[in-house]
Design a protein around this nucleic acid. Structure first.
Lengths: 199, 199
DNA sequence: TGAATTTCGCTACCCAAGTAGCGAAATGGA
DNA sequence: TCCATTTCGCTACTTGGGTAGCGAAATTCA
């Protein structure tokens, strides 16, 4: 049942997200301006701000929509499954990190990923939404690990979340802090290190 | 030998950093404004910008100065040494993460840490300076690991940098992404997981 | 039909980052 | 002493995120 007043134009959301997506992907976070998004979407800036209270919220909405909800493969080979998962996470990071750079000029910039992390720190609700995205994705991998553990393919005292944080953390650390590339080779080394231990 | 023109007032740098430090610690990144820093330091804003080309550069200078150059303990017990090191890293993160919050209202905000990560992504030179800070600190821990490995206390195929990235990465992941607390207990669990492996 | 309610577009505005340009002050060198 | 050079303070400005307030449009309910 409709609320009381004039209904929202639902096409507006779509047009705004479209325009914002294009700007974010082509020009990066700094090149995404609410003025231009509003202009391209053919609406007033105030209308935009009625739906997304800050640019950070808008950018998160864009990125959340871009997330492909890829499934996790479960072949029973935990080493391989985890490597596959890490590679998918890495691919997502790499897609965002080059956003806004002229082709060929990649630099070490973590770009949009870093800005979204900062956005999460600035607004509590953005942080929660972001955490939901990660959590949903990690939950699948978590079950993968639990199953392997319960079937005796991993040590019984393995804490799935700690293991995941070790793996994903290293990827994010590379992208955000050291700026080194993350590829399948690195994902493999990482999983090997985490599974085999250092002792 | 002095350059040609009017010399820079060296006291200005000190006064600016002082004012910026206080603002950053008390009000957080968003509460640090170049206008107020300049006013408190008793200089014109243009003078500030002649030394630090952006607010991001200034903030990094502040944080870099705050880093305590604590040594790394080497007791020969690699498990304990790494835990100590992780705890020091965590302490540094926790110090920055509460910056700008009224006491008691900690929230999950990663605050200044996240903003600095974004700053590194925005300006290549800020990124390089930041990486230098981390690299210098990590180099010590790296040697610690190498020594343990070469003395047979760790597997011979251990890659020190990968191990460090696993450890530090998980800490940063917690602070920046999941927002969970990092304390000594977590540091211990982390080191145990990395050393013992999951298999 | 009319009243209440909500969205929309518009204009004008505030704030903070960062820049342009100028005259005055402080230095080294001829 | 005079000149080149550089810093400094100042004022004015541009840009982008975000807000206030208003009149018009679109809807529900009586």
């Amino acid at each position: 049942m409709r609320p009381r007043g004039r209904p929202r134009d639902t096409e507006v959301d779509e047009r705004v997200l479209q325009a914002a997506t294009e700007l974010l992907l082509r020009r990066g976070y700094g090149g995404l301006t609410t003025d231009e998004v509003a202009e391209r979407a053919g609406i007033a800036k105030t209308t935009l701000y009625r739906r997304w209270p800050t640019k950070d919220h808008l950018a998160l909405a864009v990125v959340a929509r871009l997330q492909d909800h890829d499934e996790i493969t479960d072949t029973g080979d935990i080493r391989r499954d985890l490597t596959d998962y890490m590679e998918k996470v890495a691919a997502g990071l790499n897609r965002m990190r080059v956003a806004g750079l002229p082709p060929g000029q990649e630099s070490r910039s973590a770009g949009t990923v870093a800005e979204l992390v900062a956005a999460a720190a600035r607004h509590d609700d953005v942080g929660e939404l972001e955490r939901d995205v990660y959590a949903r994705r990690n939950a699948l991998a978590c079950r993968l690990i639990e199953r392997a553990r319960d079937e005796g393919r991993l040590r019984p005292d393995v804490d799935p979340m700690t293991l995941l944080e070790q793996l994903a953390g290293a990827l994010y650390y590379r992208v955000l802090i050291t700026g080194n590339p993350v590829d399948r080779a690195y994902a493999g080394r990482l999983v090997a290190a985490a599974l085999d231990g250092a002792l």
